[in-house]
C-alpha cells in the first residue's frame, strides 16, 4: 500500500493508511500532548487534550488526533491560539478534580492553566479510563468498570473479580494520572474485605 503524505506543523510527514494523526506525528518526532492515550490500548478520545486543527477540503476542523485517520494532503496544526485555549480550559476543568496531579501540573505550566479557575470537585478521578481499558483490553480481566452517566460517571472495582485478580497484578496503578485509582482499590478492599495478597 502506498504511503500517504500529509503536513504537520509545516513539515511533510509520510504515513501509512489506517494510521491516526497522532501516530503519524509521533513517528516523525512531533509532540502532541495526551492524557487518555496509551500505545497498548485502542484509541479512546475521551480527554480531548490531543485536539489539533486539521484543514481538509477547504475546511478547518478541531479533531482528536488520537482518532482522526490520516488522509492525503491533510494539513495539521498541533499548536494555535485556539488549540492552546482548548487545552488550557480542559486542563483547568481536570485540575478541579486533581489539583496535585504532576502530569496535569506540568501541562498547566505549558498552557497557562490555573488550578483555581473552577471550584474544587470532590472526586480525584479524571475518568481517563486507562485503568478500565487496560484491565479489559490488555489483561482481559474486566475487574474495573465505568458506572453511571454524565457528570455522575465514575470507575468502580468489581469486588467479585478484583478480589481474585488484582492482588498480584496492579499493573494499572502506575497508569493513573491522579492518586484516585489506588484509593478506590483500597476502599473496595476495605468495604468487601478481600486480602491484599
Amino acid at each position: 500500500m502506498s504511503d500517504i503524505l500529509l503536513t504537520i506543523d509545516g513539515k511533510e510527514v509520510r504515513a501509512k493508511e489506517g494510521m491516526t494523526v497522532l501516530n503519524a506525528a509521533q513517528s516523525s518526532g512531533i509532540f502532541i500532548p495526551t492524557l487518555c492515550h496509551h500505545e497498548k490500548l485502542e484509541p479512546y478520545g475521551g480527554c480531548r487534550i490531543c485536539t489539533v486543527e486539521v484543514e481538509s477540503r477547504g475546511r478547518t476542523n478541531y479533531v482528536a488526533s488520537c482518532l482522526y485517520p490520516v488522509e492525503k494532503n491533510l494539513v495539521v496544526r498541533t499548536r494555535s491560539e485556539k488549540i492552546d485555549k482548548i487545552r488550557k480550559v480542559l486542563i483547568e476543568l481536570l485540575l478541579a478534580h486533581a489539583p496535585d496531579s504532576p502530569q496535569l501540573l506540568e501541562m498547566a505550566k505549558e498552557y497557562g492553566a490555573k488550578s483555581v479557575r473552577f471550584g474544587k470537585e470532590p472526586s480525584f478521578c479524571v475518568l481517563c479510563g486507562l485503568c478500565v481499558r487496560y484491565c479489559a483490553e490488555v489483561k482481559k480481566k474486566n475487574a474495573i468498570a465505568f458506572v453511571d452517566q454524565g457528570p455522575k460517571r465514575e470507575i468502580n472495582f468489581i469486588p467479585e473479580i478484583a478480589s481474585k485478580e488484582c492482588w498480584n497484578c496492579k499493573e494499572c496503578f502506575p497508569l493513573c494520572p491522579t492518586s484516585y485509582l489506588q484509593a478506590a482499590y483500597v476502599l473496595t478492599q476495605g468495604l468487601v474485605g478481600f486480602k491484599n495478597s
Binding site: G46, R48, V89, D148, Q149, G150, P151
Partner: peptide
C-alpha cells in the same frame, strides 16, 4: 442527566 460523560469538554463543561 442525559449525557454519557465520556469526554471532558462535555462532562466537565456541563458540570461547571
Amino acid at each position: 442527566d442525559e449525557s454519557c460523560g465520556k469526554c471532558v469538554p462535555c462532562r466537565e463543561g456541563i458540570r461547571q
